[in-house]
Design a protein around this nucleic acid. Structure first.
Lengths: 199, 199
DNA sequence: AAATACGCAATGATCGATCATTGAGCAAGT
DNA sequence: ACTTGCTCAATGATCGATCATTGCGTATTT
């Protein structure tokens, strides 16, 4: 059974956003996308609504969807929220995080960093943080975290502002360490770590 | 210009969920709702997707939507997330919260409490907390907070578990006070306050 | 020339119909 | 009686077409 059309379209739109095919401010016209993919308007609409939830796309009645203008202030806001979510997650996850999984992600991060490809690092970076949120055991928290689409935000911030996602993949070692020794200060640590991405 | 159909349908579904017309576990059948409102399936689908985002309704491909089974554990998860969000919000909002607005909400809360109607208290309770989140100045945070539909969750928890939303509307006084003197401990205070709803 | 009103093309919103999947009920086989 | 398929109604997913709104270009007015 193939994935619902809406999912495929959603992915296609995401790819287009990440690749820069659609720039901030651009309209995403339901019918054009539908025509291009040879599907009807309906599943495209649904995919667009999903993207709205990611807050990468905004739309108003009868005016359609457009890619949000992303400013550094927006990025700051996003990271504040993300920091708060992960702070909560880390506190809940303390003592339950699979350390070996974290280490695996960090290893891959180092690997990608050696090759010097900023974009290649993103999936591992995200995976590291997702691991922590997942370990919180709070489904709602995880789905809220997922729903904010940080992977896309990270891509956008690299492309739009030439951000280097983390000068040093080593930033993550202290976090692993803190989890290993079940440091109750983990919340603050993660919070600052995430916020450091915007500075 | 009237509100989009989807909005009206969304509201009608929410009312039905709050009133108990649809119980946890019940299916919400697109065509039945469409027939009842004399609209087509499409806007009902869209409204249902909105509700999915509120996490009150879940759906899987080709199986449609159903009202989530709500357990006290779910409620706990929701409030953990909410507490985290409001903790973040309160820290950002310190020194920028309109104290008078908070006091107004508290007054109405007391009013409703005197009449002894638990449900009537909900809007004011929510308004109080929304005020704080709004004062954070972080749009994303606000929209994430809104998107979790705490008002409905509160109603559900009252109806399903006979929760009394706050034994004492006075719980809110210390928070107002803390904002007034710009107490840096406001984050923890709010956090514990929100979490107290689940105990 | 500027302001306003009008008309039209583009496009979002909604509709009614059709396709495809699911799950329950029934029947045949063991 | 239990299992395994099969059939079919219900219903979600998708479609193609129509309705309604918006925004822009053009004509008209002042």
């Amino acid at each position: 059974m193939r994935a619902p059309l809406r999912e495929q379209i959603r992915q296609m739109l995401l790819d287009g956003l990440i690749s820069g095919r659609w720039q901030p401010g651009d309209r995403i016209v339901e019918r054009r996308v539908a025509a291009e993919l040879e599907v009807s308007q309906a599943p495209v609409r649904e995919a667009l609504r999903d993207l709205e939830a990611l807050r990468i796309v905004e739309s108003s009645p009868n005016k359609g969807a457009r890619v949000r203008e992303i400013t550094e202030a927006d990025l700051r806001e996003v990271y504040e929220v993300r920091a708060g979510l992960e702070e909560t997650a880390a506190r809940l996850a303390l003592g339950r995080v699979p350390i070996d999984a974290l280490e695996r992600h960090v290893a891959r991060l180092h690997e990608a960093a050696r090759h010097g490809d900023a974009f290649a690092q993103v999936p591992h970076l995200i995976a590291f943080h997702r691991e922590i949120v997942r370990a919180s055991g709070n489904e709602i928290l995880l789905s809220v975290w997922e729903s904010l689409g940080f992977e896309v935000w990270t891509h956008l911030s690299i492309r739009l502002f030439r951000a280097t996602p983390h000068e040093n993949a080593d930033d993550h070692e202290p976090i692993v360490e803190a989890f290993r020794r079940q440091d109750p200060g983990i919340g603050l640590l993660i919070r600052d770590h995430v916020l450091s991405y915007t500075r």
